[in-house]
Design a binder for these strands. Sequence first.
DNA 1: GGTTGCATGTAAATGGTTACATGATTGT
DNA 2: ACAATCATGTAACCATTTACATGCAACC
Lengths: 180, 180
Amino acid sequence: MDIRTLCLGVLTLGDATGYEIKKMFEDGMFSHFYEASFGSIYPALNRLTEEGLVECTQQAQEKRPDKKIYSLTSTGRSVFAAEITIPPGRDKLRSEFLVNVIFSEFLAPNQLRQVLDERIRFHHQQLDEMNKKADTCGANPARQFTLGYGLALHKAAAEYLTQNRDLLEDTSDTSNEAAE
Amino acid sequence: MDIRTLCLGVLTLGDATGYEIKKMFEDGMFSHFYEASFGSIYPALNRLTEEGLVECTQQAQEKRPDKKIYSLTSTGRSVFAAEITIPPGRDKLRSEFLVNVIFSEFLAPNQLRQVLDERIRFHHQQLDEMNKKADTCGANPARQFTLGYGLALHKAAAEYLTQNRDLLEDTSDTSNEAAE
DNA sequence: GGTTGCATGTAAATGGTTACATGATTGT
DNA sequence: ACAATCATGTAACCATTTACATGCAACC
């Protein structure tokens, strides 16, 4: 699944500009499980327009570039509907954090502590953010579900890290003794 | 963090061939949070050899290509040690599953059911695999920790999905009534 | 007789990011 | 004064995947 398809998906929720779509990946709905930069979104929208899957109505603005409001065409909608029925592939994850953990013997104790502190702080921050969003998303069950999913996982992660970090940190402490 | 660095990391654990490194990403230690194909590993090892970060001793084999056993040089080890102290970037995730969930109104009820069933099955399978590995990894606290982390997250995910799938599925059922 | 495992590699295509270019407005 | 927000876009670069090429051995 590429950015092109994701853009179609976003537009099923209502018309939007490229800039607004970017925000969905930055703060919005998708921010927790997908990323996309301007450099991929704008070309995607242009290509989708050429292919007739979206339409674009230009809206002149005084001192800024014209705002280009994209909307899904009926072709676009059915292309997306077809795309979304393809069984989802595996999640793709790259976690530098877990690489750090696996190779934590290479880290000084205070560095490891910092990495773990920061990670736990991050999970708590995500929990806060998601709790705030939970009110906003009202009666949409899909958004409630994904938010709940995010909450459940960040909570589990934060708890695991808090409760088990000593497994990692005790060893670095005792490695002097253990080596002797 | 690129495959090059990951290869250095793997080699800190002992000498290995490209083929063996690939297996680490397929079944081994890294399989749960990183992926890599031959097309990235072999060129990475060649480049690392050119740069003097790894060494390669060829081992002739009768009816197969020579086995190339790579080992870390001291330069390689210190380059890796430096690399690993860089604070980890954010996890990069792309979850087609969650895209499916967000846009689940586009799925027929039985398709959605299948997607959720499959996902729950997947988490249980991962739990099984990790439980099996837990015995194998003996006294290495870093591996125990990452495995425990994986177990905690897959468990939380499986539970959340099992307990809350009706949030998604009830709506598709009642959408006929709600629309009327 | 077909698939899996062993073992290496390359070339093309993919799909993205980063950095640049432009520029007013609003908030700190 | 400086950063952030709004708003679009391009070009160079990057890392990686996919598909191909080779080929025997062991298992089912």
